[in-house]
Simulated assay, not measured.
Amino acid sequence: MTSPHLRLVGNITCLPDFEGWLYLATVIDLHTREIVGHAMAEHMRTDLVCHAIDLAAARGFIDDDAVFHSGRGVQYTSGQFRAALAE
């Protein structure tokens, strides 16, 4: 990878808190290894990963020809998330 903003990966992790679980979705730039987008919620719905990718895009961390990789969870394979990536 020769420049940032071209190869991104996403993941969701769960974090225990005093009231149950929080879910953290991250978008990581493989070139810089920085977290360029994130979102946290009490659920793992598709909105969670969409908010993370939206933040990365709003911050200017995604090039038009970027490639995004994630696991094959329903959040990442949904039409809603594909639409968020297309934006």
Score class of each variant (00 low, 15 high):
residue 1 M to I: 12
residue 2 T to P: 00
residue 3 S to I: 06
residue 4 P to W: 03
residue 4 P to C: 04
residue 5 H to Q: 10
residue 6 L to S: 08
residue 7 R to E: 09
residue 7 R to M: 08
residue 7 R to A: 08
residue 8 L to V: 05
residue 10 G to W: 00
residue 10 G to R: 00
residue 11 N to D: 15
residue 12 I to L: 09
residue 12 I to T: 09
residue 13 T to G: 03
residue 14 C to E: 13
residue 14 C to P: 00
residue 17 D to S: 06
residue 17 D to R: 05
residue 19 E to Y: 00
residue 19 E to D: 06
residue 19 E to G: 00
residue 21 W to V: 06
residue 22 L to Y: 03
residue 22 L to I: 10
residue 23 Y to F: 15
residue 24 L to V: 07
residue 24 L to Y: 05
residue 25 A to Q: 06
residue 25 A to L: 09
residue 26 T to W: 07
residue 27 V to L: 03
residue 27 V to H: 12
residue 28 I to N: 04
residue 29 D to E: 06
residue 30 L to P: 12
residue 32 T to M: 11
residue 33 R to A: 05
residue 34 E to P: 03
residue 34 E to G: 06
residue 35 I to R: 05
residue 36 V to T: 15
residue 37 G to A: 13
residue 38 H to G: 00
residue 39 A to I: 10
residue 40 M to S: 11
residue 41 A to G: 11
residue 43 H to S: 15
residue 43 H to L: 10
residue 44 M to E: 15
residue 44 M to Q: 15
residue 45 R to S: 10
residue 46 T to L: 00
residue 46 T to A: 11
residue 46 T to I: 01
residue 48 L to R: 07
residue 48 L to M: 12
residue 50 C to L: 07
residue 51 H to D: 15
residue 52 A to I: 03
residue 52 A to N: 05
residue 52 A to Q: 04
residue 54 D to N: 13
residue 55 L to F: 05
residue 55 L to G: 00
residue 55 L to M: 06
residue 56 A to T: 14
residue 57 A to Q: 14
residue 59 R to V: 04
residue 59 R to W: 10
residue 61 F to M: 14
residue 61 F to S: 15
residue 62 I to R: 12
residue 63 D to C: 08
residue 63 D to V: 01
residue 63 D to M: 07
residue 63 D to N: 11
residue 64 D to H: 04
residue 65 D to K: 09
residue 65 D to A: 11
residue 65 D to H: 14
residue 65 D to T: 07
residue 66 A to M: 10
residue 68 F to T: 03
residue 68 F to H: 13
residue 68 F to C: 07
residue 69 H to S: 03
residue 69 H to Y: 07
residue 70 S to Y: 06
residue 71 G to E: 15
residue 72 R to I: 14
residue 72 R to N: 14
residue 73 G to F: 10
residue 73 G to D: 04
residue 73 G to E: 03
residue 74 V to I: 08
residue 76 Y to N: 03
residue 76 Y to R: 03
residue 76 Y to L: 01
residue 77 T to L: 10
residue 77 T to R: 13
residue 77 T to K: 11
residue 78 S to G: 04
residue 80 Q to D: 12
residue 82 R to S: 05
residue 82 R to F: 00
residue 83 A to N: 10
residue 83 A to M: 12
residue 84 A to H: 02
residue 84 A to Y: 02
residue 84 A to K: 02
residue 86 A to Q: 14
residue 87 E to H: 08
residue 87 E to C: 04
residue 87 E to R: 13
residue 87 E to A: 05
residue 87 E to P: 00
residue 87 E to I: 01
